[in-house]
């Protein structure tokens, strides 16, 4: 496997290192956009315009459930990467499928929460607080949705071409993305849901 790659590029690991570093740099800029949304939320959280506050709308048991699901999915994603590095294709696919299912469950719960709040008549247009809330949490949810799509595409690639260095490097970046979303969620459940 390594021979094929060393024939085509002089130092494949350095090459993949650079790609991973470039992706990490993108993630850090993404973190800055999340920071801007967090700052917006922190500034506007009190501006409820006579509408409901976080205390009236949020259900902590639900958020604890979401948190555990996302944390477990981060864990299974790590186990999938260990299987990938050991070249255990079926085990890697199994763990990525579990990660995908947990991610889908997380997103469904978030969707449920959003539709519940909107069904009570409190959409993003209700107050500055709710605009900031839906934008911050929704942006994270959108990232999760992109991650889920990415897992599907990666699984198809693993299934079609196996764990080649090219595919392994793609999976490496997918796992970094997924763990990154787990870290951002820590601040969402702390700042949005716990410090309400």
């Amino acid at each position: 496997m390594n021979e094929i790659i060393t024939d085509t590029t002089p130092s494949p690991h350095d090459h993949y290192d650079k790609i991973t570093l470039g992706f990490w740099t993108y993630l850090m800029t993404d973190l800055i956009s999340f920071a801007a949304l967090f700052a917006t939320y922190a500034v506007l959280r009190g501006n409820t315009f006579g509408g409901p506050t976080g205390n009236d709308l949020f259900s902590l048991p639900l958020v604890l459930g979401e948190t555990m699901i996302l944390l477990t999915s981060s864990f299974t994603c790590g186990l999938a990467m260990i299987a990938v590095r050991k070249n255990l294709k079926n085990q890697a696919i199994t763990f990525f499928v579990i990660t995908f299912l947990l991610g889908t469950l997380f997103l469904s719960l978030e969707f449920m929460e959003f539709s519940h709040i909107m069904a009570e008549g409190y959409g993003p247009q209700t107050s500055a607080f709710l605009s900031a809330f839906f934008t911050l949490v929704g942006t994270h949810g959108l990232h999760i949705a992109v991650g889920l799509l990415w897992i599907v595409v990666s699984l198809v690639m693993v299934w079609l071409s196996g764990l080649t260095p090219f595919v392994v490097n793609k999976l490496e970046r997918l796992s970094i993305f997924w763990h990154f979303l787990g870290v951002v969620w820590i601040f969402i459940f702390t700042i949005v849901y716990l410090l309400k």
Partner: peptide, 8 residues
């Protein structure tokens, strides 16, 4: 910090 060290 824990997740960045152990996961990332």
């Amino acid at each position: 910090f824990v997740q960045m060290i152990f996961f990332l």
